[in-house]
């Protein structure tokens, strides 16, 4: 076996890879993968001499599990809003020191004091997005304005939706005029027949990359993340993104300092750096999400601002997810039941 012969080399490589690190000039950042451009991190290191260790996760729950286990010490984490709310409730975040964050003023007022952090004590919004409908306008000529236009019998097997029970349940609740955080057994029973009808029409469920099926032409409509919609629009203008008229959901990914952070000074420096207009604009350049930084938005190119998925036309006030705790089990049960019955 050749592999066994090159093993000593690999052993050496492993030893070098785990050489001890100096702690005070380092920032341990635990964030979504593919969300912070490497150039932004490199410039921060160049300026401050603080090395950023960027460890990534691919789902909010994965982050939560590791954070709660406490195996690694992070200085800065990037949870979605509703998980941040739960972390605040469980006293797992450290209050921010605004004296060290002069750039905080750059944020748009609608992205501060949001329901997950009403006193604006713990969290800094990083990027935001919506969940909306994507339509391939070459194939679908009729206008689509809401969930009811999307889930029609004639579109059977031409629809992709997020494989996320809560997003689907919320969409059904919107059509019934029920608030998106009112997850009660009674409301879920009302949503059940609506969802049962929808599920018969859906071709596939995909949360990781719903754009694939749309680009491949295997489906023509979708209920997807705004980020996916923005990428699709950049790729081909035939993919139009619409916020459903019945109501839509806004999500914010935030940055926060968890309990047990070793280097809070560096964490504050990094937060203030991210809040600079030019840095925030550089992030938008790479990732087409909704930028909550008002000053940064002024630096964006017109075509970036024209992307309907990044900066959608808001018909109705957007709502954010709240932490619903144990009710998430009810949603999981309902969706499992419906999928199984299909």
């Amino acid at each position: 076996m050749k592999l066994l012969r090159i093993l000593p080399l690999l052993v050496l490589a492993a030893v070098f890879a785990t050489v001890a690190r100096a702690a005070d000039k380092e920032l341990n950042l635990y964030a979504w993968s593919e969300y912070i451009p490497q150039s932004v991190l490199d410039d921060f290191t160049k300026e401050t001499g603080i090395k950023v260790n960027y460890e990534t996760f691919a789902s909010g729950e994965e982050m939560l599990a590791k954070l709660l286990a406490g195996g690694s010490r992070y200085d800065l984490i990037q949870p979605p809003d509703y998980i941040a709310e739960a972390l605040i409730k469980n006293k797992l975040l450290i209050a921010l020191d605004y004296k060290k964050l002069p750039n905080f003023k750059n944020l748009l007022p609608e992205f501060t004091k949001m329901p997950h952090d009403p006193e604006q004590k713990f969290t800094i919004p990083y990027m935001a997005g919506t969940v909306g409908i994507v339509v391939n306008t070459e194939k679908i000529k009729e206008p689509v304005t809401g969930y009811k236009d999307l889930f029609q019998k004639k579109y059977k097997d031409r629809i992709v939706v997020l494989d996320d029970g809560r997003e689907l349940v919320v969409a059904a609740l919107y059509t019934l005029g029920i608030g998106l955080n009112d997850i009660t057994p009674a409301n879920l029973e009302k949503a059940r027949p609506v969802l049962a009808d929808w599920f018969k029409l859906i071709k596939l469920f995909d949360s990781d990359s719903p754009k694939t099926a749309l680009l491949n032409g295997d489906v023509d409509l979708g209920l997807v993340w705004g980020g996916e919609g923005a990428i699709l629009w950049n790729e081909d203008k035939k993919f139009q993104y619409i916020l459903p008229s019945e109501g839509a959901h806004l999500f914010v990914d935030i940055l926060a300092i968890p309990k047990g952070a070793r280097n809070q000074v560096a964490a504050h420096k990094f937060l203030d750096y991210i809040l600079r207009p030019e840095v925030s604009a550089a992030i938008s350049e790479e990732f087409p999400y909704t930028n909550p930084n008002g000053e940064a938005r002024k630096l964006l190119k017109p075509e970036q601002l024209a992307n309907p998925a990044s900066y959608p036309k808001i018909v109705k006030k957007l709502d954010t997810f709240r932490h619903i705790g144990e009710s998430s089990t009810l949603i999981d049960e309902l969706v499992t039941d419906l999928k199984n019955a299909k």
Binding site: S59, E61, E62, A65, D163, D164, G165, R166, I202, K203, L204, F205, D206, G325, E326, S328, T329, I331, D332, T336, K339, N340, K342
Partner: peptide
């Protein structure tokens, strides 16, 4: 089954995975 089948029908693996993620129910 998720990627090539479109995640239309749940498998036992999905169910267990979900309890530790979306459903927030480790004990179950």
């Amino acid at each position: 089954t998720d990627l090539m089948g479109g995640a239309r029908v749940p498998m036992i693996g999905n169910i267990i995975q979900n309890q530790f993620s979306k459903a927030f129910n480790w004990p179950f």
